[in-house]
Amino acid sequence: MTVEEDAGDKKDSGGTTAREPAPSSPPRLPGSILFLCSMNSIRSPMAEVIARKLLPPSVYIASAGVRPGARDPFVDAVLDEVGLTLGSHQPHSMDELEDDYFDLIVTLAPEAHHQALELTRSHSVEVEYWPTLDPSVVDGRREQILAAYRDVRESLAERISRRFGTALPPAS
Rank of each mutant, 00 (worst) to 15 (best):
Ser88Ala: 11
Pro110Lys: 15
Ser32Gln: 04
Glu81Asp: 14
Ala47Cys: 13
Asp6Asn: 15
Asp76Ile: 04
Val75Trp: 01
Thr166Ile: 00
Pro56His: 15
Trp130Ile: 03
Arg153Asn: 08
Asp72Trp: 00
Phe164Gln: 12
Phe164Met: 07
Glu158Gly: 14
Arg163Tyr: 08
Pro135Glu: 05
Gly83Asp: 13
Gly65Pro: 12
Ala109Ile: 14
Arg43Phe: 03
Leu79Ile: 03
Pro135Phe: 10
Trp130Asn: 01
His92Arg: 09
Val106Asp: 02
Ala157Gln: 04
Ala62Gly: 07
Ile105Phe: 06
Val82Gly: 11
Ala64Leu: 10
Glu154Asn: 06
Pro23Phe: 13
Val125His: 04
Leu168Lys: 11
Leu34Ala: 12
Gly14Asn: 08
Leu97Ser: 11
Glu96Leu: 14
Thr17Asp: 02
Ile105Glu: 06
Asn40Leu: 10
Asp151Tyr: 07
Gly8Glu: 04
Pro21Arg: 15
Ser155Ile: 08
Ser88Ile: 09
Ala77Val: 08
Ser155Arg: 06
Leu55Asp: 13
Arg28Gln: 01
Ser172Leu: 08
Gly69Trp: 01
Leu117Glu: 06
Ala18Met: 05
Asp100Tyr: 07
Val75Ser: 12
Ala22Val: 00
Ile33Leu: 11
Arg142Trp: 06
Thr166Cys: 03
Arg141Pro: 04
Asp9Trp: 13
Met94Thr: 12
Lys53Thr: 10
Thr2Lys: 06
Glu158Gln: 15
Ser58Lys: 02
Asp139Phe: 11
Arg71Ile: 00
Ile105Cys: 00
Ile105Pro: 01
Glu126Pro: 09
Leu79Arg: 05
Val138Ile: 10
Tyr149Ser: 04
Val127Cys: 08
Leu84Val: 03
Pro45Lys: 00
Ala47Leu: 12
His89Ser: 08
Lys53Glu: 13
Ala64Ile: 10
His89Ala: 03
Arg153Thr: 08
Thr166Gln: 14
Asp100Lys: 02
Glu96Lys: 13
Asp72Met: 00
Ala64Cys: 12
Pro135Asp: 06
Ser25His: 09
Pro45Cys: 01
Leu36Ala: 06
Gly83Glu: 15
Val137Ile: 10
His89Pro: 08
Val106Phe: 03
Ala148Leu: 04
Ala64Gln: 05
Val82Asn: 09
Arg43Asn: 10
Asp9His: 12
Glu154Trp: 00
Ser161Ile: 04
His123Lys: 10
Leu34Glu: 09
Gly69Glu: 01
Arg19Lys: 15
Ser58Pro: 05
Leu55Pro: 08
Ser24His: 13
Glu111His: 03
Leu108Glu: 00
Ala70Tyr: 09
Ala70Asn: 08
Arg43Lys: 15
Pro169Ser: 15
